[in-house]
Simulated scan of single mutants.
Amino acid sequence: MTQPKPKAAPPESLAPIDRLLAIMARLRDPDAGCPWDLEQDFPTIVPHTIEEAYEVADAIERGQMEELKSELGDLMFQVVFYAQMARERGLYGFDDIVRAVNDKMIRRHPHVFADAAIDSAGAQTVAWEEQKAGERAAEAAAKGAAPSQLDGLPLALPALTRAAKLQRRAARIGFDWPEAAQVLDKIVEEIAEVRAEMVDGAGKDRLADEVGDLLFAVTNLARHLELDPEQTLRGANAKFERRFRRVEALAAAEHGAGARPGLDALEALWQRVKQEERELRRRPKTDRPRRPDASA
């Protein structure tokens, strides 16, 4: 009779990364692993990877450094998961992934690891992008395809982020507005086109096309103002959520829990919340109420 495999975790005497790899291998063990982990494949893990990356960003935005440690571990585990599945297929292992990124970082930083001279972060960004463009061109040539400035932009990127990257790539060959003011004019034009489609009673496909153009133009404005559109919208989301929760609290206090006071009353409360925030910003920092999670 086959003896059951031991349940003990890999020993703590292992180096931390080796212990993590051993834990992952145990989770994927066909005989004694975790049923959920065994069911996973590359496509099924992707949503979890994206979620973990956003949780890292969230912890950073909230300034939660201890929480960030945990979230970074979760993100690292995603890489280990992919590496284990690749090893099982005989493709490559974790060490191969590390070697590849080691080689890439050394190759893309000749000013650090060789004799190239780069004297500013801006110059480094240009050099980095030029090197990546050269690598993409070589990959396209190896496939017998004509290279494009837009090669290598993942479709799975958030739409705002990908729009900004597409615009930056196009700008490399001069396809760009010279000034932010011209982008504002383009936004006004796109708004007029959306309005015209609404007046004409256009279907959703036409409206989606025009609203998409408007969002693309607004993304372009953010890029020209050196703002990250994804982070900018995340900030707007956070501001809306903060204000709306305050509106809900005020509405409950004035009209009773669960009440629906109507748009005019809610708009008045919204303006009141905005005024509260303006007054708070004008107060000296020492007079402002401390956040509940602020350190003593």
Rank of each mutant, 00 (worst) to 15 (best):
A123N: 10
L155A: 10
R99T: 00
W36E: 15
Q167W: 01
P158T: 08
A86G: 11
A137D: 12
T44A: 13
I97M: 15
K104W: 09
G73W: 05
K104R: 14
A156V: 10
N102F: 02
V79F: 15
A121R: 03
A159C: 08
Q78H: 11
M105K: 06
P35W: 06
T125R: 09
P154H: 05
Q40D: 05
A57S: 14
Q149I: 12
G134I: 03
G134D: 05
R136D: 02
E139I: 07
P35F: 06
L38V: 06
E61A: 15
A170P: 04
K104G: 00
R89W: 02
C34Y: 03
H109F: 09
L91P: 10
L153K: 03
D151S: 03
Y54D: 13
K69H: 09
G90F: 13
T161R: 14
K143Q: 11
E55Y: 08
L153E: 02
A100T: 10
W36D: 15
F94W: 10
A117V: 15
A83D: 09
D37K: 03
M65P: 06
A164Y: 04
A133Y: 08
A141F: 02
Q167Y: 05
R62G: 12
W128V: 14
L91F: 11
P154L: 03
I97K: 07
A83Q: 09
P47V: 01
Q64K: 05
L157H: 09
L150F: 10
Y54T: 15
R169V: 11
E88K: 10
T125H: 10
E66L: 08
D103L: 15
G144S: 06
F175Y: 12
E61L: 13
V101P: 01
A127R: 07
G73F: 01
L75I: 04
T44L: 13
G63M: 12
P43Y: 04
W36Y: 15
V46M: 01
A57N: 14
K69C: 08
A145Y: 08
M65F: 12
V46A: 04
E61M: 09
L150M: 09
T161I: 09
R108D: 10
F94L: 14
P154E: 09
G33A: 01
G73H: 06
A163M: 08
R89F: 01
A156I: 11
A141M: 01
A146H: 07
G134E: 02
G122D: 12
A138C: 02
V79C: 13
L157A: 02
D41Y: 04
V98A: 04
G33S: 01
G152A: 02
G90K: 14
E51R: 12
F81R: 12
K132Q: 00
